[in-house]
Write a protein that binds this DNA or RNA. Structure first.
Length: 276
DNA sequence: CACTCTACCTGTGCGC
DNA sequence: TGCGCACAGGTAGAGT
């Protein structure tokens, strides 16, 4: 499941890989499944995409943002969200469309940019201004400083796990890295954000930065038999019943805010300031 | 306003 | 073996 580190890996491979997408021109568009275009995309149009050149590739949270320039000099943004099962990659043009391909952009150098998504959750946007998709988002989870993180945390009285998943709080954290960060910080996922002791807030901020940057370095997570993007090894996610690597306690799985949540009941005790 | 819940999807893996 | 069903999860939008 692509989260910030996996999306960053896609950015790097498309931007810095060989061949790079930068400079490539869109020759034609194959919108295999029209539902892939988001209902909030204001100007998706195959004809508008045709002839565009890729000028930049970036990321905000889990959104991939492609800066485009058409032949008349108009700047556009192609935004892509991979959601759960989306994949975006360059292939030789003859492999442009396969079973789960939702969108393929034929390029002018014998390549195609292909968007596959078996579960049809992923979406694309063609917009003039990227803030149309990123506007409501909080600061990027890899870039947020401690002071801003701490002041935003105490602004809410919510369980910390669902808050971490809220993209308007910080952008880029999904279910896997929320569980991993809370484990690394030794914080129970149900702790109320505003009740976190100052030291716990500091540990959480550091844990998020460490976990995400390690995962970026590893080019994403490797979750045994379920998901493989890179080589980042998880400590709690998907390890229900297995031993905590620190204390040996069996990893628990509960539901918090409708999400499967994995944690160590021994290492992640209550970190609230209350004395209950 | 602040927060919670559901719909959207389909491949996988489990139990019967 | 084969069938059916629950489950996984990010976000928009509806609900409380």
């Amino acid at each position: 499941m692509p989260e910030l580190p996996e999306v960053e890996s896609v950015v790097r491979s498309l931007r810095d890989g060989c061949p790079s997408l930068i400079g490539a021109r869109v020759r034609s568009v194959n919108l295999v499944w029209p539902g892939v275009v988001s209902s909030t995309s204001d100007c998706f149009d195959e004809e508008l995409l045709e002839g565009c050149r890729f000028a930049s590739i970036g990321r905000v949270g889990k959104f991939l943002l492609f800066g485009l320039k058409n032949s008349r000099g108009r700047s556009l943004c192609l935004a892509v969200h991979l959601r759960m099962t989306g994949r975006l990659f360059l292939v030789p043009e003859r492999e442009a469309v396969e079973r789960h391909t939702r969108l393929a952009l034929m390029l002018d150098d014998g390549l195609a940019l292909r968007f596959d998504d078996p579960r049809k959750f992923g979406r694309v946007w063609l917009i003039d201004d990227p803030s149309a998709v990123t506007g409501g988002m909080g600061p990027d989870a890899l870039a947020v400083g401690f002071e801003e993180f701490a002041s935003r945390l105490t602004r809410y009285r919510r369980q910390i796990k669902p808050l971490l998943l809220d993209q308007s709080f910080v952008a880029g954290i999904g279910n896997i890295y929320a569980d991993e960060s809370l484990y690394r910080a030794g914080i129970h996922p149900c702790t109320i954000s505003a009740d976190l002791a100052p030291d716990a807030v500091r540990r959480l901020h550091a844990a998020i930065a460490t976990v995400l940057s390690e995962a970026v370095e590893a080019q994403g997570a490797n979750i045994d038999g379920v998901f493989k993007a890179g080589s980042f090894v998880v400590s709690v996610y998907g390890r229900e019943g297995a031993s905590c690597r620190i204390c040996g306690t069996a990893i628990s799985k509960i539901r918090v805010g409708q999400r499967g949540t994995h944690f160590c009941g021994h290492c992640q005790n209550n970190c609230s300031t209350s004395t209950t």
